[in-house]
Design a protein around this nucleic acid. Sequence first.
DNA 1: CTCCCATTTATTGTATACAGCGGCCAGTTG
DNA 2: CAACTGGCCGCTGTATACAATAAATGGGAG
Lengths: 251, 251
Amino acid sequence: MAERDSERSISQTVRAQLTLRDLILTGGLRPGERISELQAVEAAGVSRTPVRMALVRLEEEGLLEAIPSGGFMVKSFSERDVLDSIEVRGTMEGLAARLAAERGVSVRDTEPMRECLAQIDELIAPAELSFDGFSAYVALNARFHALLAELSRSPPVIRQVDRASALPFASPSGFVMAQSALPEARHILVVAQEHHRIVIDAIENREGARAEGIMREHARLAARNLRLAVKARGPMDLVPAAVLIKTQTNG
Amino acid sequence: MAERDSERSISQTVRAQLTLRDLILTGGLRPGERISELQAVEAAGVSRTPVRMALVRLEEEGLLEAIPSGGFMVKSFSERDVLDSIEVRGTMEGLAARLAAERGVSVRDTEPMRECLAQIDELIAPAELSFDGFSAYVALNARFHALLAELSRSPPVIRQVDRASALPFASPSGFVMAQSALPEARHILVVAQEHHRIVIDAIENREGARAEGIMREHARLAARNLRLAVKARGPMDLVPAAVLIKTQTNG
DNA sequence: CTCCCATTTATTGTATACAGCGGCCAGTTG
DNA sequence: CAACTGGCCGCTGTATACAATAAATGGGAG
């Protein structure tokens, strides 16, 4: 009942957007493939109007590309594109952290972040981390990064950070599930958590350059995860956005 | 004839987007005001469907804000918001410049930029600069910044730079017309041109940090122009986006 | 007189019908 | 046999009709 209510309460546009995004990320629509509106209509179960709205929004989101002659196609990304998107995200998070540090924050502001930090500490305390553990980490990590952006207290900055994190492979948690199959998994998590600790410390001490630098480096962990995952050939199945990435081996 | 052709060739959606954007920037629609679709329909002279598409795109562009209960309103910005948007743009341009420097560029790549540089030099050579001179500078300056972004050779970076420059007051030329009424006008232009020179030099010498730093500082010239303009109370009429900025004196 | 509820109206979200355009295939001609 | 052109089909872009929801106003009751 609650499900049906929530399913029905959301707009058809959002429903179409969710359905199509999922379809793209699960590989139902191949990169470079032109998206037929009629096809999208029957996939989402709504009319053409909300489907078209959803297509426009997904284009702005970066998943789709407008075809000059009309319509949209699924965008495809080179490994370089992915790495650059991560760099962009890191740069924006660095800006958010620097502004937070320079402008100062109250302990009341960092309180929820410290709490989040403690929860992650607790989570990664055991020597081994289960698959569900990684899932829990993803949620906590996303929360931490969202809180950090808000610490800038700047709507324009928050907005740009969000937009830079919109692409699934550019998001802070884009490749942590891939980690779960990597031998270096726990090491990386420990280092990431150290970064989290440092950025809070830097912000509280109003060390802008330090806060910015550590967030940039922090984002590069995702880049390393990507490289490790493609090298190991396998864990990439765990990251949904993998279907968007052009593989040189394929062709 | 050519006018009518170009007017007719563009899609109704684009036409509506152009009309509405102009209406917002010229103050036809006040910030905070809810935009009626019917009103927009008769203003743009097209049907509701392309109007709705245009509204969605203008929201993504940052000029509009979605109202939870439905519809859109014109966004309003504090002076702080504007300054932060400029800082965001500077940060992204800094990233583009750094990547260009680190990855290296050929002389063939910087050739058009040097050309652009020379044209600006020529333009600002006279002691006084006419109003038309400032207009010409705006075009040349926009071209220079566009070329710089492309120098990164990174689609994701170029995309984010463009998005950061979309808001009219965040664009590289957002406040140069306001300069034309300022006594410090020519000084600022000389400094800006020096920045242009330095960033090319830094990129060619693969000095990433220098290239990044100078672009950040370069963007802050726009911030200074804004502050000077609001202080002088007057030149703000020359910047269309001024109507979007909340004034503390008003209300 | 004021506050709350109901009704009405206006406005948005959705669906569908229509038209214009481009792409594709086949037929013809050099 | 190959290349070009003409027509047909399917697609997107646009317009409009319909439904549902939110806001506003008026009336009634406390």
